[in-house]
Amino acid sequence: MTYILLAVLFSVAVSVLLKLARRYGIDIVQAVATNYVVAALLAAMLLGATPQAAIEAKATYVPLVLLGILLPAIFVVLARSVRTAGIVRTDVAQRLSLFLSLVAAFVFLGDTLTGMKSLGIALAFAAVLCVLWRRQRDPMDRAGWIAPLAVFAGFGAIDICFKRVAQAGAPFASALLASFLIAMALCWIAVLARAAMRVAPVTLRSLGFGVLLGAANFANILFYVRGHQALPNDPSLVFASMNVGVVVLGTLVGAFGFKERLAAVNWLGIALSIGAITVMATL
């Protein structure tokens, strides 16, 4: 379980870094672009990944391109969400996005809807509503729920894309590296264009922050993969431990480390999210 604990720590560390980015004047686009340089290098070095297997399977083209667009976009949305809605709501929304994959499985992939799957979907849906609820002080300020809702939808779409790539026969490491390379290329085009238009000059501070972000982001993925490799016969235990761990630690860090205010209904949503993850882990 050491690998899972490390994966949880680095997952929450990514949220903490994004929370601190604005405080230190970090350009998030530059940081995300650098993050993918680091993540791609580490994927090649530590996972022995090459993009050929993913590229050779023609059925992977559409989901890989979508991943290349969605992965950097979700980082920008994550940064917005942790800033406006907080670490707690953002991490819970991210983890509950897995229920969208569950819905997609029987809507698009011919899976059968069972009683337990219905219970998991119902709990996850109720948890999302409770966690995202907040008293609106300003009717015009909708970022408090729109940003985490976008995180929820975005990570659900990413998980579905990875499943489609896996169905095409591409190994996970190969698909991961290919999507990182596409995301890296798109991000650096954006960075150079913004610098050329003098919207955001490239700074060493933002690039250095991106190195930290990339290391934490990849460490989260690496230790989660290692957790599955260490417990090959207990994938549900790894799944539940990882997601519940992120919800619990993210709640502690957000509520007590950053003094994020949560109403009783938000705490109920956190409890429901743990129940939903537990149910989904048994499917």
Results as ranks from 00 to 15, higher is better:
M1V: 14
T2A: 14
T2K: 14
A7R: 11
L9R: 09
L9K: 06
F10R: 01
S15N: 12
S15E: 09
L17H: 09
L17M: 14
L18G: 10
K19T: 12
K19L: 05
A21E: 14
V29W: 10
Q30E: 13
Q30K: 05
Y36G: 00
V38K: 03
L47Q: 11
T50G: 15
Q52R: 15
I55H: 01
A57S: 08
P63L: 08
L64A: 10
L66E: 09
G68H: 07
G68T: 08
L70S: 11
L70A: 13
L71F: 10
P72K: 00
A73C: 09
A73D: 06
V76H: 15
V76S: 08
S81I: 10
I87G: 00
V88A: 01
T90N: 01
D91K: 15
R95H: 07
L98T: 09
F99H: 04
L102A: 13
V103K: 02
A105E: 10
L109V: 08
L109Y: 11
G115L: 02
G115D: 02
L123P: 12
A124Q: 07
L132G: 03
R134A: 08
R134D: 12
P139G: 03
A143S: 13
A143T: 12
A143C: 02
P148M: 05
P148R: 03
L149E: 04
A150P: 11
A150E: 07
A153L: 07
A153R: 01
G154W: 05
G156H: 01
I160K: 01
I160V: 15
C161I: 13
C161Q: 09
F162S: 07
F162G: 07
G169K: 11
F172C: 10
S174Q: 10
S174D: 12
A175V: 09
L177Y: 09
L177H: 09
L181S: 00
M184R: 03
A185W: 07
A185S: 14
L186W: 13
W188G: 04
A195I: 01
P201R: 00
P201G: 03
G208W: 03
V211K: 00
L212V: 05
G214E: 00
A215C: 12
A216E: 06
N217K: 04
A219K: 03
I221T: 11
Y224D: 12
G227T: 07
H228I: 14
A230I: 10
A230K: 08
N233L: 12
S236I: 06
S236G: 15
L237V: 13
F239G: 05
A240N: 13
S241P: 11
V244W: 00
L249H: 14
T251R: 01
V253F: 06
G254T: 12
F256L: 11
F256Q: 04
F256D: 02
G257M: 05
F258H: 04
E260P: 08
A263Q: 12
V265W: 09
N266E: 08
W267V: 13
W267C: 06
G269N: 08
A271T: 04
L272R: 02
G275N: 06
G275M: 10
G275P: 02
A276V: 06
A276H: 02
T278A: 07
M280V: 12
M280T: 10
A281N: 03
T282I: 01
L283P: 12
